[in-house]
Amino acid sequence: MAETLAGAAAANVRAYRDIGLMWTRAAMAYPASFWMMAFSGFVVGGLDFVGIWIMFHTVDSLGEWNLREIAFLYGASGFGLAFADMLVGRVERLGDLIRTGRLDAMFLKPLPLLLQVCADEFALRRLSRILQSVVVLGVACTFVAWSPVKVLVTLSMIASSSVIYLAIFVAFACIQFWTIDANEVANAFTYGGNAVTQYPLSIYPREVVTGLTLVVPLAFVNWYPALYVIGKPDPYGFPDWLRFASPLAAVVLMALALLVWRTGVRHYTSTGS
């Protein structure tokens, strides 16, 4: 059973790769457009951080975090978002797929629906956003006083950050099974969530941080593991074990997202003809 499950998973990964490659080839039919989009993705993402950097010319710290420490937060959240966006970002166009009947066509292929939706119009150029986050995170990492546990926590943070954003993309996209025009809702939590977690949560009121821990657990994307890796006290006095709980939050959130997806698919009513 475990073997067939692993076999099925491997087959799905291969299918995603094949579909992704095909869209990449299709995108390469217009190479100039591809490279321009990739380059602008890198620059726009970079400008974001330049903004924070300029801000630090007038302030020395933000919520008692300095620029290098904030770069760590920025890189971790940015990587998670960019990675999730590349893998499943197209799920936010679910409403369009429903409207045009393309989702119906996906029902007719022997692959999981979510895989097909996410692989649809796969855009390799989004790799540039990931790259940009990696650069910032990489630089930030050079200032960390490393220990083996810190390495583990950092690696699990990067993985969890990606999975949490994946789950948020999927869960909120599902709203479109009920109301077709709701893709902005997901944006509020993905891109909006990234904008919030670029900064140390210590600049927000306690209630906001509680919400980001318990309701939409974006605090696990970078905040809690960073507290451990950089070695800071929790300004709100939340329990220390939260610093290691990011993988748990990621798994729970992903399970919830898949449940919502399943419910959405069974609720699906297609379009007129």
């Binding site: 299709a26 009947g101 066509a105 007719l108 003809s273």
Partner: peptide
């Protein structure tokens, strides 16, 4: 199953 919709294609437009 094979399914063909007369009014829309399941082929990849640019390929």
């Amino acid at each position: 199953l094979g399914v063909v919709f007369g009014q829309r294609t399941t082929l990849w437009w640019d390929l």
